[in-house]
């Protein structure tokens, strides 16, 4: 798997990962902060997995933040790479805490699909909804005025203190067609996943899971299959 990662890391979507993890390592750790809230940074590889779909695509979902108090700079990346071809969604955001569990985030989005790319302006909310649902909601707008909406939520149920079952759902919709990203107008896709991880430590957990993905309407026309169910196996880690 390692070689696969290296081979795709040249792609636009993945090069950002290297930058993010390097940033985390470069940021000085907490320094004797008895009198003030320290600057903290966190790099999370939420998903790094292989799917059982044809040619075993590699999927990643990751975020990096650097924070002081209620303000943070966030970089997020998610995507898929298969046979050297990749597609990804990347965000560079400034976040400000506006409610106990919510950050308002503003920034830029950069999507890639093979050799093409697409830029967005982004505004969103990131945080925890009641009943402990980790939730992100982003509205996007591009230069042509096309709007996008991306919602995702995730829950963690403890089977034991270390064995954790994590259902999640992600929905995407667009106000117009974006051919270079193979996206049609309207509700574009819905993904539902269920992953079971074992936390050897808080910071390191391998997992297995199942992912169901459905494309709709015009978006579905771009795809050979409008529905996919995959088994996945991967690693979650953070530092």
């Amino acid at each position: 798997m390692k070689t696969q990662i290296l081979s795709v890391s040249k792609r636009a979507g993945l090069s950002i990962l290297t930058a993010m993890s390097t940033l985390t390592l470069c940021v000085p750790s907490v320094q004797a902060g008895m009198m003030d809230d320290p600057v903290i940074s966190k790099f999370t590889m939420d998903k790094l997995e292989v799917s059982d779909q044809e040619d075993n695509p590699v999927i990643w979902e990751t975020d990096f933040w650097i924070m002081k108090g209620l303000q943070r700079l966030v970089i997020k990346s998610e995507g898929e790479s298969v046979n050297g071809e990749s597609e990804s969604h990347n965000l560079l955001l400034y976040g400000q805490g506006i409610a106990p569990y919510w950050d308002l985030q503003l920034g830029l989005g950069y999507d890639t699909h093979e050799e093409d790319s697409h830029n967005w302006g982004v505004i969103g909310l990131s945080g925890m909804a009641p009943y402990f649902f980790e939730t992100d909601a982003y509205a996007l707008v591009d230069g042509d005025g096309t709007l996008g909406l991306r919602l995702s939520t995730e829950y963690e149920a403890l089977i034991t203190q270390r064995l954790i079952l994590s259902p999640e759902a992600e929905l995407k919709a667009y106000s117009g067609e974006i051919p270079e990203l193979k996206i049609g107008s309207g509700l574009s896709s819905l993904g539902i996943g269920l992953r079971l991880r074992y936390e050897f430590t808080r910071k390191f957990a391998p997992y297995v899971g199942i992912e169901w993905h459905q494309t709709f309407g015009d978006t579905a026309d771009y795809h050979e299959e409008d529905q996919e169910t995959s088994l996945v196996a991967g690693l979650r880690f953070w530092f």
Binding site: S29, G33, P38, K42, A157, L158, I159, T160, Q161, W238
Partner: peptide, 18 residues
């Protein structure tokens, strides 16, 4: 301290289970 800032229940291994 950094662990607590990144994950406030980092050290709590007596959480509710299913």
């Amino acid at each position: 301290f950094a662990n607590l800032k990144k994950m406030p229940d980092y050290y709590n291994f007596k959480q509710r289970t299913l």
